[in-house]
């Protein structure tokens, strides 16, 4: 249930994102989801890819600062109320969501969540019969 997301430190310089994607593209790494968080001076690129370990090695060799971060993923109908429900389950248990992003596949949303406590979050969502995605399934998309 734990998904390994790539987190990459990037300076806010034009062309840096392109370089990351080119490096991964050359090694046939597929990207399931991508999100960028930025400040005025630097950004964090977050990626769900087909082979996180391999992608990390490739980027490391190219001198990127990269880490694997544990996140979870929930599939739900792509309506706001389901997203709200998921967040409420977590906040009711004082599990904070550090960040989240989502994308749609047909009528379904795939939601990525980074929580203060991953194990507790998984338990809580399972007990509310939420559909947690397996890492292997997510990487395949």
């Amino acid at each position: 249930m734990i998904i390994h997301q790539l987190s990459i430190f990037l300076e806010n310089k034009s062309g840096r994102l392109t370089e990351v994607l080119e490096v991964l593209g050359e090694e046939n790494i597929r990207i399931t989801a991508l999100s960028v968080a930025d400040t005025t001076e630097f950004g964090l690129l977050r990626l769900i890819v087909s082979d996180p370990e391999k992608a990390r090695e490739i980027l490391k060799k190219q001198n990127f600062t990269v880490n694997l971060t544990e996140v979870i993923s929930v599939m739900a109908p792509n309506e706001a109320k389901y997203y709200a429900k998921i967040l409420k389950i977590l906040s009711d248990l004082d599990i904070s969501v550090e960040y989240t992003y989502a994308f749609s596949v047909g009528a379904k949303s795939i939601i990525i969540l980074r929580c203060s406590n991953t194990e507790d979050a998984i338990k809580a969502l399972k007990s509310h019969e939420m559909e947690l995605m397996k890492a292997s399934d997510l990487y395949k998309i």
Partner: peptide, 11 residues
């Protein structure tokens, strides 16, 4: 790199 985590607030 050993310290790097993906939290903006931490950085």
């Amino acid at each position: 790199e050993a310290f790097f985590q993906d939290k903006i607030s931490q950085l």
